[in-house]
Nucleic acid binder design. Structure first.
Length: 609
DNA sequence: AGAGGTGGTG
DNA sequence: CATGCACCACCTCT
């Protein structure tokens, strides 16, 4: 592609006076498309300082110096960034959106994100979002020096010419990338998916800015209690294994010394298989629970507590933001091959369900005067399977509000249907066979896998599977069609057109069959899991409208795949709960038309799920 | 620094 | 033949 700028000598204007700002804005206001990027001293919009805001067209970058100018006091700048008629191209727009919202006071809209577009165009192939450097190499054909970026992080004093050049290049390079990506998005019929991602990203940014409160003192108490328990089991363990080691158990000062490291898989294997005479393939929980030995039991107890402490203890508390006092996790809206969100620092999508000893979710609370509203789709993926497969019996059962797993069991074993608890009473065990099949199938599980999970013979597993498919013949056809199609075309697709690509192995690959099987399973799961993700993202966009309009005081705090949590002013919370689940249902009904969609809201002072 | 094992979530 | 999807955090070990 022929570039409209010189990568070695990009055109830029350093805006450090109000007069220059006016001149730049005069030019930029005429552009239908602008590139936007920022430089700051760090990654957190609340603690890092905004240094530069670069806004450009395809030939020149206007670099607003946020240290020398009070950008909040330039109304024309805010108006430019908030002009809904102007397309703003950014790379990882969420990041810049947050800085500009907090430190310029502008809420950007009509975003085009080169990172998300790249992710949508290569879903399943790379495992990560493309960097601007990679896209620049791919579409502009030159190598971008990212070494200068670090120089902003301990920035002192004046901006150097090198820094300005580097900053200018970012907005300039995005134009050719944008043009080329748009062509490809059209070719792959991914425009609608890309638009959904672009519309979602400012919602995600708003969600991250809001963050969520946790009750720190109570959290610490819970951890302390868990530590006490863990230490008791650790002491028991060290005591119990002493006879198997020739080692001093006291140090020079008479303190107890651990005989071994209980967290070391290698040392545990040595203990179990060499010293205790067991014969176990691994020390995972699934293996240990089938071993009847007091030392093994102690380890299992210890592990339960150690896990909670290490994953959800101090390290999580350290991530509370010093400015807001809240957690602001980093959500990656293209963090998975299927279109689902991933989340980190901390990952709120893996906080344990509430339990007696570790009621972590109860310690996620609204601000005073607010409520948390939690709503999740009920058995959404089963409904998606029913709808997409078009299986008449499954659809009818869901329309009639039947408990699907009981109904499935009644078909499989030719017994009468009753609602869940009654069915369980009359036919003990049957529902517990049907339920794992339903879930397992959505993961492409085989008869052998099912047998292993149910703890029955492979023959029995085969028999159950056949009974299931005889009950729902369209489900088998649908799932097999998905995997055949993926193998033939090299990709799978959700009803809205979100694609996931597969890298087919060479037939000479020693793992050829294993890899092909894996692709077949992934292709069965992708349209189901991906449709859930598509619906959640539409729901995000629908829901955010109510908060943007000012009609409701609050915002989204987080999402866990089929669940959205909002923090809403107390007096509005009950009305909001209805709107939140209605909007989630509306979003899902864009794709799911044959079976009813349900979303159950909960209003309270805790994160309830 | 990265891989492997383990285990938390939907 | 080998056979359940999608993640992230923490730990040990090399």
């Amino acid at each position: 592609m022929k570039l409209k700028f010189d990568p070695d000598n990009p055109k830029y204007v350093h805006i450090d006076t109000l007069k220059k700002a006016d001149e730049a804005l005069e030019k930029l206001e005429k552009e239908p498309v602008i590139g936007v990027d920022i430089e700051g001293t760090g990654l957190d919009p609340y603690t890092a300082k905004l240094l530069l805001v670069q806004i450009g067209n395809e030939e020149v970058s206007y670099i607003f110096n946020a240290q020398q100018l009070d950008l909040k006091a330039i109304p024309r700048l805010k108006a430019l960034l908030e002009d809904p008629k102007k397309i703003k191209i950014l790379h990882n727009a969420k990041f810049d959106y947050k800085f500009i919202k907090v430190q310029v006071g502008a809420s950007m809209n009509n975003l085009y994100d080169t990172m998300l577009a790249g992710a949508v165009l290569t879903a399943g192939l790379t495992g990560k979002n493309p960097s601007l450097k990679e896209l620049t190499m791919k579409y502009c054909g030159f190598d971008m020096d990212k070494g200068v970026r670090k120089s902003f992080h301990n920035h002192m004093g004046r901006i150097t010419e090198d820094q300005l050049k580097y900053s200018a290049l970012d907005t300039l390079a995005m134009f050719p990338i944008f043009k080329e990506q748009v062509k490809r998005l059209k070719k792959e019929k991914l425009v609608r998916v890309a638009k959904l991602e672009f519309a979602s990203t400012r919602v995600v940014a708003e969600m991250e800015l809001r963050g969520i409160i946790i009750n720190i003192p109570e959290w610490k108490k819970v951890i302390k209690n868990l530590e006490k328990k863990r230490d008791q089991y650790a002491a028991q363990f060290q005591e119990a294994i002493q006879p198997y080691y020739n080692r001093r158990t006291k140090d020079l000062f008479g303190n107890d010394v651990d005989v071994m490291n209980m967290n070391s898989q290698a040392q545990l294997m040595d203990l179990f298989n060499k010293r205790l005479g067991l014969d176990i393939p691994s020390t995972s929980a699934g293996v240990l629970e089938n071993v009847d030995h007091p030392i093994v039991n102690i380890l299992s107890d210890y592990r339960k507590y150690e896990k909670l402490i290490s994953a959800f203890g101090d390290s999580l508390l350290e991530q509370v933001n010093p400015v807001t006092g809240r957690l602001h996790p980093d959500f990656n809206q293209m963090g998975t091959a299927t279109g689902r969100f991933s989340c980190r620092n901390p990952n709120l999508q893996q906080i344990p369900r509430n339990s007696e000893e570790a009621p972590f979710r109860e310690l996620f609370n609204p601000a005073p005067g607010y409520k948390l509203v939690t709503a999740d789709y009920s058995s959404f993926e089963m409904r998606i399977l029913a709808d997409l497969s078009g299986d008449e019996k499954m659809i009818t059962a869901l329309r009639e509000g039947k408990d699907l797993h009981s109904y499935t069991a009644s078909l499989m074993f030719n017994v009468d249907y009753y609602p869940k608890s009654e069915f369980k009473k009359k036919n003990p065990g049957l529902r517990q066979i049907a339920k794992p099949i339903g879930f397992g199938l959505m993961y492409g599980m085989s008869a052998q896998g099912l047998a292993a999970q149910l703890g029955v013979s492979p023959e029995k597993g085969e028999e159950y599977m056949e009974l299931y498919f005889k009950s729902y013949p369209s489900v088998r056809k649908f799932l097999d069609g998905l995997s055949d199609n993926a193998v033939k075309k090299g990709w799978s697709m959700t009803p809205m057109g979100r694609k996931r690509w597969y890298k087919k192995p060479s037939p000479s690959d020693p793992d050829y069959r294993r890899r092909m099987s894996s692709i077949r399973r992934q292709a069965k799961n992708h349209p189901i899991q991906g449709t859930n993700a598509d619906a959640i993202k539409f729901a995000f966009v629908f829901i955010q409208k109510y908060f943007d309009s000012g009609e409701f005081d609050g915002g989204i705090t987080h999402t866990v795949h089929d669940e959205i949590v909002c923090e809403v002013r107390e007096d509005q919370a009950e009305d909001w709960a209805k709107i939140q689940s209605d909007e989630m249902i509306k979003a899902a009904e864009l794709f799911i038309k044959k079976v009813p969609v349900a979303s159950d809201p909960f209003v309270g002072d805790i994160w309830e799920h």
